[in-house]
């Protein structure tokens, strides 16, 4: 599904290397987790994959379903099935959540050569998906993320994922700022989306989220590289010993 090969990248403004040769293979149906300390390059990796400006890829390539991801516009990546749940979902006053979601879904359908979904069908679809995530009509009608609580913003990201049905989902610190109940709801939403046709990559600091969404593979990222990979037990080791011993090994 997603193949990251020797990815090197810099911050354009600072000309500072952030990713220093990332390699990662994710197959359909798998759930991966990347853990790592602050500043290890986890979020940068997710932004580069989504196509955010401000980064320069120095070397390497990324294939999504065999296609060169890095050469596409962000909207083309989305239409191909790529989705990033933002660490800090963006507030857009003046744009209704429903208008946004329907515009996004229809834009993707159009790019894929599919018919647009009608307003009525969309409303039914969105309401049904929202219900599972404990999102009420009121939240659907409000402007995108505007005035949402931290938990509401994260649930809104998962709602977008549920409606758009991407095949490759990256969740960037989706657990940050969530209380236990909100985390359960979000995790249930994500688990609901697990399936043979879809791959999920969780980016997180803590083991906590992985108690609710059990990954098949865990990777440790440090200083712009994946320094160790393993099964769920690796996350437990980190929880127990901290990242300190990892950086020691990496060095």
């Amino acid at each position: 599904m997603l193949s990251i090969q020797n990815l090197h990248a810099n911050l354009v403004e600072e000309d500072k290397a952030i990713l220093k040769g990332v390699n990662l293979e994710i197959h359909s149906g798998e759930v991966h987790a990347i853990m790592g300390p602050n500043g290890s390059g986890k979020s940068t990796l997710s932004y580069i994959l989504a196509g955010r400006d401000g980064y320069e890829v120095k070397a390497g390539k990324v294939l999504l379903e065999g296609q060169e991801l890095l050469e596409m516009e962000p909207e083309e990546r989305a239409a191909l099935g790529f989705f990033l749940a933002f660490q800090y979902p963006v507030e857009i006053p003046g744009v209704g959540n429903m208008t946004f979601l329907r515009t996004a879904l229809n834009a993707q359908r159009k790019m894929r050569g599919e018919d647009a979904i009608s307003a009525a069908d969309f409303l039914r679809l969105a309401r049904e998906k929202a219900k599972h995530l404990g999102i009420g009509d009121e939240l659907l009608k409000r402007p995108v993320n505007y005035g949402f609580s931290g938990g509401e913003k994260k649930r809104n990201e998962i709602l977008q994922m549920a409606v758009l049905e991407p095949r490759m989902c990256i969740l960037d610190e989706t657990d940050s700022g969530l209380d236990v109940d909100a985390m359960r709801q979000v995790a249930a939403g994500v688990n609901n989306l697990r399936g043979k046709e879809r791959a999920i990559l969780l980016i997180t600091h803590y083991q906590r989220l992985l108690d609710h969404i059990e990954p098949d593979h865990v990777h440790i990222m440090a200083d712009g590289q994946i320094v160790e990979s393993g099964g769920p037990e690796l996350a437990l080791k980190i929880e127990e010993k901290g990242y300190g011993f990892m950086s020691g090994e990496a060095n």
Partner: peptide
């Protein structure tokens, strides 16, 4: 707002359409 533009585009909304949505919101 470039951050808002990126957010909309990352959901599949083309650049000109994203710009229109933000202009209408404005």
């Amino acid at each position: 707002d470039e951050t808002q533009m990126f957010y909309l585009r990352s959901r599949g909304i083309a650049e000109n359409e994203a710009q229109e949505l933000l202009s209408m919101a404005f």
